[in-house]
């Protein structure tokens, strides 16, 4: 007898579970049909692709200090610094990054680099569509990382990260 009661209880449980399934079947979905449909905006503290930001006058914020390099847990960043000259003033002060590369495949988007940066030069932006057909293309070079115009990253370099 006991066996029969158990069987009935189990069948009811299945029906109860299926009820949830069927309830959601007729509701509108929470997911979107990416990539045809895209979300309006990510969360404000979302960590996406890196940008190297510029001052309003177009000077680079990055001074090539390599603090982001040493803090990065996945060793994704490569920086080589050089000296500014009056004829070729890239950043404020004596030093700038002549080469800056980030391997976006290695990056785990932890944001440590943003935190370590003394000048707010490096920021993690909102873009997350970073796929590519080759590994090489995932190594972002300095021209790719540098904002095309001051503020283009859409991030405030002064913000609390």
């Amino acid at each position: 007898m006991t066996t029969l009661r158990v069987r009935i209880r189990q069948s009811l449980a299945i029906l109860k579970g299926l009820a949830v399934t069927f309830r959601y079947l007729f509701r509108p979905p929470v997911t979107v049909r990416y990539p045809e449909v895209k979300r309006a905006a990510v969360q404000p503290r979302f960590k996406g692709r890196h940008w190297l930001t510029l001052y309003a006058d177009g000077m680079e914020r990055c001074v090539g200090c390599e603090l982001c390099v040493i803090v990065c847990p996945s060793q994704a960043i490569y920086v080589r610094a050089a000296e500014n000259t009056p004829e070729h003033q890239v950043s404020k002060g004596e030093r700038y990054a002549t080469d800056f590369q980030i391997n976006e495949l290695r990056c785990i988007f932890c944001g440590f680099c943003e935190e370590a940066c003394p000048t707010g030069a490096i920021v993690l932006g909102r873009e997350y569509e970073l796929a590519s057909f080759s590994r090489d293309a995932m190594i972002y070079t300095k021209p790719m990382l540098t904002e095309p115009y001051p503020g283009a990253s859409g991030r405030d370099p002064q913000r609390e990260v």
């Binding site: 001074v63 090539g64 200090c65 603090l67 040493i70 002060g93 004596e94 030093r95 003394p118 000048t119």
Partner: peptide
């Protein structure tokens, strides 16, 4: 304290 641009940094 301009360590970021100082060669002695580190």
């Amino acid at each position: 304290l301009d360590c970021p641009i100082c060669d002695k940094g580190g």
